[in-house]
Amino acid sequence: MSLSITRINVLPSTRTLASGVPFANKINHSLPPQAHGHGHSAGPRTDSPPTWAQKLSGSVSVLHVNTLPNTLVFSRSFSTSSRSSAQSGSAVGGISHHATTSQRHGPTGVPDFTPYRASDTSSNRTLSYFMVGALGALGASAAKSTVSDVLSNMAASADVLALAKIEVELGAIPEGKNLIVKWRGKPVFIRHRTSDEIDEANAVDVKTLRDPQTDDDRVKKPEWLVMLGVCTHLGCVPIGEAGDYGGWFCPCHGSHYDISGRIRRGPAPLNLEIPEYDFVEDDAKLLIG
């Protein structure tokens, strides 16, 4: 019997009485925890208070409780009564007589928690800040990986990238000849220029051009001119080795490009575009893209 009593757990302390005493069902806190052994059989914690507990002795206060309970278990958040809830059931709607002298815990009835307090709060504080910071750091790095993974989904897939670059054998193009290759669905002009053509391209006065660009800006090696074969006017494909300037001629609306692919006459506003390219394997191959 006494064993089972010691195992009664107090409910979560958020559920407290108005007096601050933790609410434990069927525990009568207002009874004096007197040691018995003087004859009577009732233990200190029973639901029905024995009659001697209600004995009028010493200073007596009589409380009149008239309100009906209007919430679930505890009718009021604050109460001037220090009665425990164990009695409230029987007190509903009636008048209860209560002896205030039977309090055992002082005015609030809260147990003393001093032994549980940390002796050194400094290390506790450091630990708490550390844990909060660690949560932030881990979360930030996880969020960063998530975001970068999601973004990498939007990048071009491997099979697209595999087709995005092409290699061209340069040895197959004799001097003074054009080669047209297809790259990402567009034609690319590759011209192996003669030294005369290079001189011609350099001789032009840049200031007179519609889209001023020197020949050096347009080639990585002067003998190789690589450019997108799309007219900058309306997207036709110009014809090679044609036009008034010895370069390219767009048959659609009559734009003339020179031997460096610069616009000289006609409606086109810009020079022919230069794609990204590189010479690989000791200049034997051209890598476009």
Binding site: S122, R125, T126, G136, A137, G139, A140, S141
Partner: peptide, 28 residues
């Protein structure tokens, strides 16, 4: 009373937050 870690890193939020981001970077 306050530990050196607390006074150098945690005491000011302007130090704490950059430290957290730096830690996140180096941690990853």
């Amino acid at each position: 009373m306050a530990s050196p870690i607390y006074s150098t890193i945690f005491k000011r939020n302007s130090v704490f937050v950059p430290t957290v981001f730096l830690a996140a970077f180096s941690f990853s």
